[in-house]
Structures are given as structure tokens and as C-alpha cells.
Design a protein around this nucleic acid. Sequence first.
DNA 1: ATAATACCTTAAGCTGACTTCAGGTCAAGA
DNA 2: TCTTGACCTGAAGTCAGCTTAAGGTATTAT
Lengths: 147, 147
Amino acid sequence: MYTIGQVSELFEVPISTLRYYDREGLFPDMERSSGIRRFGERELEALRVIECLKRSGMEIKDIKQFMLWCARGSETYPERRELFLRQKETVESEIHKLEKVLDMLRFKCWYYEQAIEDGNEDRLMAMLPDKLPEEIQAMYDRAHGDQ
Amino acid sequence: MYTIGQVSELFEVPISTLRYYDREGLFPDMERSSGIRRFGERELEALRVIECLKRSGMEIKDIKQFMLWCARGSETYPERRELFLRQKETVESEIHKLEKVLDMLRFKCWYYEQAIEDGNEDRLMAMLPDKLPEEIQAMYDRAHGDQ
DNA sequence: ATAATACCTTAAGCTGACTTCAGGTCAAGA
DNA sequence: TCTTGACCTGAAGTCAGCTTAAGGTATTAT
């Protein structure tokens, strides 16, 4: 069993944040001894899941829903599985979008390297939008294509 | 040249957002005809870059800095290149973190599939933390490992 | 005994990125 | 003529996710 201060150290999360999560219902029926929160293995795993779901873009109130399902026991396994399936798809699509963002960023890096060498953008402008070197053109197209 | 309404349609961005960006200085010296904003090719490319930089996690005020560099001409090529380099690393590391999140999510999907089959978590609990099937164990370890 | 720590609570404050509101201009069509 | 639609402004409002403030309790160290 850990105190709030120990968990804060362990997870590098501010104490105020842990209390906020508790207030929002993210640790349903956490134990207390004379008013002081006691974090057990259940709460630590909850915190790991909270960090994961937050990174995946889920809102606190939806994470709370998940924690309530956990507290309700085996009857909610299907809901919990659905949630993770949905969230998995969300993250897969987010990574996909970020790969496109990366193409744009890599293209811009190359672009400004060239601009610095040339001292201006004249040659570059003349290459746009479809006369870029093969590799670069591929990046540019992926970055500027729709969807 | 496009009106704000046309750009809003084209990019699927609310008019209020475009005006907000303008107010924040993201379209320095955009043209106007009798008070009405005229979006040219420069502003459209700016908007593409804004969407990319926002996705990459950059704040509006830093995007404004970039737009000001653009307005200042060739002397700021190095700053602009540095910015894209930094942002590229940010996104690469973000993708890396999301891959770990995915491992956690995939693990949880598997976990609840098993729990549904078994009707309880007894067998699963007994496998934790290091007696999981090989493939799954790898996910679990990547998701629970530090750093 | 007292002072320093580490915990507690409720309520208010903050930040970023928008959105909404109230009121106004201007050109084109019925 | 008048009204509709697309634009404009400044100011205030919203929302999520925290953080800070003000005041209090309980345990341990000197």
C-alpha cells in the first residue's frame, strides 16, 4: 500500500492530479485509513490504464465509465473489450495521420535545406507541385493528398 | 482568391476558427478588399502548414512565430528549418509513445477476450506478470516497461 | 511542548483553443 | 424598397484538465 506522495513520486504525476482523478471518480472505492488515501495494486494498475487511455485521446469522464465497469465485475467484460477495441482503432488511425504529418515535416526540412543552399526559393518554387526529386515528391504527395 | 466562406468549405474549418487564426496573427498581411478577407495561394499553404503543425502538437503562438519568419524572407530560412527539425523529432517520439499505447490496448483486447471466454479473470491473473503466451507477453512487457 | 511534515477539503483560478453573441456593413435579387 | 445572405467587429462565454489558495488535521522529530 502506498500514500499519495509515494504514488506521485513513482508515477511522476503531481499530487494535485491524483486527487483530481480521485475526485472525478477514477479510483472507485479506494481505501482510506483515517481520511488518508491508500493506493493498492488495483489503483496502480488503474493509473497505468489511465495514462494509456489519456494518451490515446480519451476524456476523463469516459475513463471514469471504464473504472465503473471494472467495479461492477465480470458482467461488464464485453463493454470493456469494446472500449479497448474502439480505442485501438482510434490510436491506429492517429498514428496513420501522424505519419502524414511526418511526411510534411520531412519535406519542409528538405525544402529549407535547399533554400539555405540556394539563398532563395526560386528553384524550389519552379519544381512545385510535381517536378521534385523522386523521393521528395513521394513525401510531398503523401503530405498534400487528401484523406 | 477565396473568401472566408469558401476556404471554410474547402478545408472543413469553421469560419470562426479562420477569423480566430487571423486575429492571432497566423496570416500576416493577408489582403482585404473593403474590409473583406481575400485568401490567396499563400494563405492556403499557410493553412496547410497550420494544420500540420497543430497536429504535431505546436501551440498557436509558436505557429505565429513561424509565420512571422516567413514574412521576413530569406534571412530566416535557418530558423524555419530548425523548427521543422525539432517538430519532426517531436512527432517521431510521439509516434513511438503511441506504439507503446497500442501494445497496452492490444493486450487489453486479448485479456478481455479471454476473460469473456473464461467468465472470470482467475486464469489470467495467474499468468501475470510473466507467464503469458509468448506473443502476448511481448506486448505486455513493451506496454509495462519504463521509458 | 512545539514545530515540521504529509496528508486532507472546498472553492476558485488558469490556459489554450475556440465559439457565441450582439450589433453593424454592404451588395444583389424580388 | 426592402430583405436576404455573406461578410465584419469586439467582447464575453465555454470546456477540459489541471493547479493554487486558504484553512484544517494527524503523526513524528527535537
